[in-house]
Nucleic acid binder design. Sequence first.
DNA 1: GGTTGACCTGGAGCGGACTCCAGGTGGAAT
DNA 2: ATTCCACCTGGAGTCCGCTCCAGGTCAACC
Lengths: 122, 122
Amino acid sequence: MSSYSPSETAEKSGFSIDTLRYYEKIGLLDGIARNASGRRVFSDDDLSWLGMLRCLRETGMPIAEMLRYSELARGGEETFAERLEILQDHDRRVEEQIGLLRSQQKKIQWKISFYSGGTGSA
Amino acid sequence: MSSYSPSETAEKSGFSIDTLRYYEKIGLLDGIARNASGRRVFSDDDLSWLGMLRCLRETGMPIAEMLRYSELARGGEETFAERLEILQDHDRRVEEQIGLLRSQQKKIQWKISFYSGGTGSA
DNA sequence: GGTTGACCTGGAGCGGACTCCAGGTGGAAT
DNA sequence: ATTCCACCTGGAGTCCGCTCCAGGTCAACC
């Protein structure tokens, strides 16, 4: 087992088939194999790359930046430093994002305790 | 001090003037006072409501749901239970969101350590 | 030989959340 | 008196990230 149809890939990656096509079209996926009749055939490598894309998307990286990362990833080891930088910047943003969520969540929970019959001025 | 011009309000709330107008238009803001010449005058109450909206927005609540909450908030105490429910559901979603971010962040950090010259297969 | 069914393509359409624009008003400063 | 500026309105436009559609192909099953 090492090659997957579009629908299998959709299921395993969590992206819809349309999204997979879209990602290939804009260049987030590159070099996806085709069988004799022109249909996409995804490999384990493709799947793990999709996992990376999913990870970046779900942490809020915009498509344009994923594209930059993808292009670098197509380069060799000489792009490691740049890729590292992108991921480190992104990691920082994720950290901030979590911090913001946590602090806003506290306000929501305070409000909840107010509605639940707790103390409260307004 | 208890009334603010649109631009002051924008500054204090973090929403742009256009967004404030938009929020009033769609009903997220209700009963915003006007002065003699038709300009908006925001109160401290408006500002604290905007704080709540900001909190909900930044934690990813869609406008449609904030609208529902806003409408309930215009009702009296008899809507407390419903408002509570919305906030509790939302709080759960925020929790999930944070969990997802954390777990995806781990993958990113693993990748970072790989690029930083750490161990790694692929 | 006909009908599925999964896939293909290019391109149009959509939903969400703003953001911008043209044209106008009213009060204040020069 | 005029220039300015912050504001007003209704409505159009933008950006993002998909999602859907029409029309076509190919292998497979009945």
